[in-house]
Design a protein around this nucleic acid. Structure first.
Lengths: 62, 62
DNA sequence: CAACAAAGAGCCATATTATGCACTTTAACG
DNA sequence: CGTTAAAGTGCATAATATGGCTCTTTGTTG
């Protein structure tokens, strides 16, 4: 899966759950700045960061 | 998917294809040291690094 | 055992990510 | 227009990934 698609999916999932970036950051333990960078397509997160995010969203990296 | 499972899958896939770490490193453009660290479970690769590796192996991160 | 190939690990320099803080932009209201 | 919430950005620093080189360990084969 392409990077941009991944971002879209994560972003959409967060919005469906009606969670703000700030809340997701807190819940996942990822820095708000990091999350913002990721969602705005300017990041290259580590696998750990991505997993923290997807875990909270009930998603999975495979 | 858990980190360790991911590693196992990648490793197994590489072995099935009978490709050495060295060759995979060259083909994927990832440093040999980085690949070794990843496969030995001591890494936390960036998404880009992981994708470079899985691309060559004909796998996909989703 | 000896020899070889592949994998793992230490050291170290450089590049990049993760993070907080403050500020700006955007969007949706009244 | 003014207000407010959410998202995006600039900047600095700490932490971590990357990658080359070298050495050690492991596994296989004669």
């Amino acid at each position: 899966m392409h990077f941009n698609e991944l971002i879209k999916i994560v972003k959409k999932r967060r919005e469906v759950l009606q969670v703000t970036q700030e809340t997701l950051a807190e819940l996942s333990g990822v820095g708000l700045r990091t999350l913002k960078q990721f969602e705005s397509g300017k990041g290259n997160p580590t696998l750990l960061t991505l997993q923290k995010i997807t875990d909270v969203l009930g998603m999975e990296v495979t």
